[in-house]
Simulated assay, not measured.
Amino acid sequence: MPLPRARAGLLVAVTVASLTLAACSTTPETVVTEDALPSPPATSPEPTATVEPSEDSAEPVSAETPTCEGIIPASLIAEFEAEGWSVEEDVFRVAGIELADGVQCLWGDFTIASDHVQLFGWAPITSEQSGTAQGELVASGWRSEQDARGVIVTESADTTVTTDDEGYGLTYLFGDGWVKYADTKQSIALVEWPRD
């Protein structure tokens, strides 16, 4: 049965419109093909590869990221490992402040119950955070004193468990934009970050 003239005209119009849309829709695809994308300029620098540390290296992969193996000397790590010690790494905390870009390290033999451990830490810190942390520590009984390297804040002699030859226990050293931490004032000297 032949289609009525109006329906046949409508069918032709719909078909033409569909073909026109199909033809138009293929145009953008040719624009976004890989061949159509601009090539990088010939002077673009090659991407730099991340250098992985060797097995005996204590240097971290990134110069900006402190790690437990990077903030103390490799020779000290070798001594710890010879004793069967390992490390537990945590976020650096001082008073009520967490410094997420820092690292706090507890070295010891965790296969046995023992309080024979060593603590080290390093973190970047703002002057505002530094002032707040020092104030909180002193308010809770810690002692503060000026040092040639910065401000030393050490735990009260009444609460310390382990001390160095000078009688200092847990100690923070606040410098210009950074804070170091160790189980004694003398051990602060072992924290070497950032590396030169």
Rank of each mutant, 00 (worst) to 15 (best):
A6T: 00
A8Y: 00
G9K: 00
L11Y: 00
T15W: 05
T15N: 07
S18A: 15
L21N: 09
A22C: 11
A22Q: 12
A23Q: 11
C24W: 10
S25H: 10
S25L: 14
T27N: 02
E29K: 13
V31H: 15
V32E: 10
L37I: 11
S39G: 09
P40G: 06
P41M: 03
S44Y: 06
T48R: 08
V51M: 05
E52Y: 04
P53N: 07
S54D: 13
D56S: 14
S57Q: 07
A58R: 06
S62I: 04
E64R: 05
T65G: 03
T65K: 12
G70P: 09
I71W: 12
I72G: 09
P73G: 10
A74V: 14
L76R: 14
A78Y: 00
A78C: 03
F80M: 06
E81C: 06
A82I: 01
A82F: 00
E83I: 00
G84M: 05
G84F: 05
G84H: 07
S86C: 07
S86T: 15
V87E: 08
V87C: 05
E88C: 02
R93Y: 09
I97P: 11
E98H: 13
A100S: 15
D101G: 15
V103H: 02
Q104W: 15
T111R: 15
T111D: 13
A113I: 10
A113Q: 14
S114L: 08
G121R: 06
T126S: 13
T126F: 04
E128L: 11
T132S: 13
A133G: 08
Q134G: 06
L137I: 05
L137T: 02
V138N: 01
S140C: 02
G141Q: 08
G141R: 07
W142S: 04
S144H: 04
D147T: 10
A148M: 12
E155F: 05
T160K: 03
T162N: 12
D164C: 07
D165P: 08
G167C: 06
Y168P: 04
G169K: 09
F174S: 00
K180H: 06
A182F: 09
A182C: 10
Q186N: 10
I188L: 13
A189N: 07
L190A: 07
V191L: 06
E192D: 14
W193L: 01
P194E: 01
R195C: 03
